[in-house]
Computed example of a mutant assay.
Amino acid sequence: MSIIQQHTAASLSDAWRTINIDALEEDSSVNFDTSTLHPALPEVSEADVRQINIQVRQLLRGGDAEGALRGSLEMPVYNGSDLAKEAHLHTVIEVLQSIKASEMTPMLQRIYGTPGGSECLDVLMKYLYKGMAATSAADGNSSAPRTPTRMTPQQTGFSQVGGRPGGANESTGGAMSVLLSWHEKVVEVAGLGCIGRCMTDWRKV
């Protein structure tokens, strides 16, 4: 009989365990529900997103761009359908594009200096990265819908992607430029820690 043991794929797998030793470890994840580590998030419906969009548009028409920006950031869609998340992304981008470059830093500083302002800028950073990802995907696939440069309301209440007046053939470079400008200003006001918190937060927009 050969002293060389013949190994098979089965013998090299985890089948050699005769007992589940993880169950004997008090700190093992099998002994508690890991979902309890994350608190439940309120579900945001499509109707809620439509209502937020209406309120934000009213603030923009009234000339309160700062209130519109803060209002769109205080109600991020963490727990909602893909359609609701996409619609709210369009709302945030619409607000960002309505604000002049000279107003970015002073506005961010005022928001950052108020209670909950740091959280608002963290949320803004999440939407900036989400918008950049959507823009890059649209730029790499000409058949994909492009990141909105301007939006007009539909009868359904949701916003519809549309081109700037006289700029139907505008490339996604303009939209990316706006997002990058805001990214620079957010880092300038909130620091690099804003990026770290955005990347490590399990709550995704």
Rank of each mutant, 00 (worst) to 15 (best):
T91P: 00
S142C: 00
L41N: 10
V56A: 08
R61K: 06
S136P: 08
R61E: 09
P39G: 09
I111S: 13
S102M: 09
P115N: 12
N31R: 14
L37P: 01
N31H: 04
R61I: 03
A40I: 08
S35Y: 03
A47M: 08
R50N: 13
S118A: 07
S81H: 06
C120M: 05
P165K: 10
S98E: 03
E103N: 04
G117S: 04
L89R: 06
S72Y: 12
D33N: 12
L124T: 00
A68L: 03
R61G: 03
S35K: 04
D64F: 09
M75N: 12
G117V: 05
A138Y: 00
A84K: 13
L83E: 14
R110T: 14
P148F: 06
Y129S: 00
A133G: 03
A101I: 06
A138I: 00
T149Y: 00
S28H: 10
E86W: 14
Q51I: 09
S102D: 11
K85F: 11
V92K: 01
R57S: 12
S81C: 06
V95F: 01
V44L: 11
E103Y: 00
S98C: 03
T152M: 01
P106C: 10
G163V: 14
S45G: 15
V56Y: 00
H38E: 01
E74G: 05
A65C: 07
N79Q: 06
G131Y: 13
L37R: 00
Q58M: 12
T149S: 08
P39N: 04
Q55H: 11
P165C: 07
G157E: 08
S45E: 15
P76H: 02
A65Q: 10
F32R: 13
V92A: 02
D27T: 02
F32L: 12
Y112D: 09
R57M: 05
Q97A: 13
Q51Y: 14
Q55F: 09
P39E: 07
G140K: 10
S159D: 03
Q55I: 10
E43I: 15
F158W: 10
S98Y: 00
T114C: 10
T149W: 06
L108D: 13
D139A: 15
I111H: 09
R70Q: 15
G71W: 07
M75A: 13
G166M: 10
V56T: 09
G113W: 07
N141C: 05
R70L: 15
T105R: 15
L60M: 12
A65D: 01
G163W: 12
P153H: 01
P76A: 06
M132I: 09
G131S: 11
L59C: 02
E43Y: 15
L60Q: 11
Y112C: 07
Y112I: 11
P106M: 14
G113N: 09
V92P: 03
D139I: 15
A47P: 00
A40F: 06
